Simulated scan of single mutants.
Amino acid sequence: MPGVTALVLDRSRTRLLAVRRTDTGAWTPVTGIIDPGEEPARAAVREVAEEAGIACTALRLLDVRALPPTTYPNGDHAQFLDLCVLCEAEDDAAPFPADGENTEARWFPLGAPPPMNARFVEQLELAITDRPETRLAR
């Protein structure tokens, strides 16, 4: 299934938006499933608004990778193709957990992000280095 990670920076490019997931308690960038027929950039912007109450603009594709298969507590199985989109907040609004999928939403300094898994750390590094090409996992 196609999924999106929205890596959102503030306009000064000094802070990262992160949310604490209700299901695992982990801090992550905003993530979600791309609706059928939806453009990935629109999905990233929509997910950020739905999950953190922040308006943002999608800037470019940072990273594309197949994620490992996952099994949900109800027994459902899924595997996602993750499209990581670099986004920029449109203003300095304070994020909040807008839809129940997260217990917290806040800005973190780029030099002191919350603890995140290796994938999100790698994607943040891609955003910080700001190279123009998209990273394609091989």
Rank of each mutant, 00 (worst) to 15 (best):
I33G: 07
H77E: 14
D91A: 08
E88T: 05
R119A: 13
N117V: 15
L67V: 00
P36Y: 08
P40K: 08
D23V: 13
A98M: 06
P114T: 11
G3P: 07
P114D: 12
R138M: 10
A93M: 01
L110G: 01
G25L: 02
W107C: 06
G25A: 03
L136S: 08
C87K: 08
A93L: 03
T22C: 14
F96H: 15
A43E: 10
F120H: 15
L9E: 02
E51Y: 05
D10K: 02
T31Y: 08
L17Y: 02
A58L: 03
V45S: 01
L17A: 03
P97F: 09
I34G: 00
R20I: 11
G32M: 09
A58Q: 02
L67E: 04
I33M: 09
I128G: 01
R131D: 12
D63F: 11
T103L: 07
P73L: 07
T70S: 04
D91T: 06
A6C: 11
R138N: 11
L7H: 05
W107G: 04
A78W: 02
D92W: 06
M116Y: 05
V64M: 07
E39S: 14
P109M: 04
T71V: 15
F96V: 09
T22F: 15
D76G: 11
E88G: 00
E101S: 14
T24G: 00
C84D: 13
T5Y: 05
M116D: 06
A94E: 14
E39Y: 12
A44M: 10
L81Q: 11
D130F: 13
A127Q: 05
R42H: 13
A58D: 05
G111A: 03
V4E: 03
D10C: 02
P132H: 10
L61I: 15
N102F: 14
P2W: 07
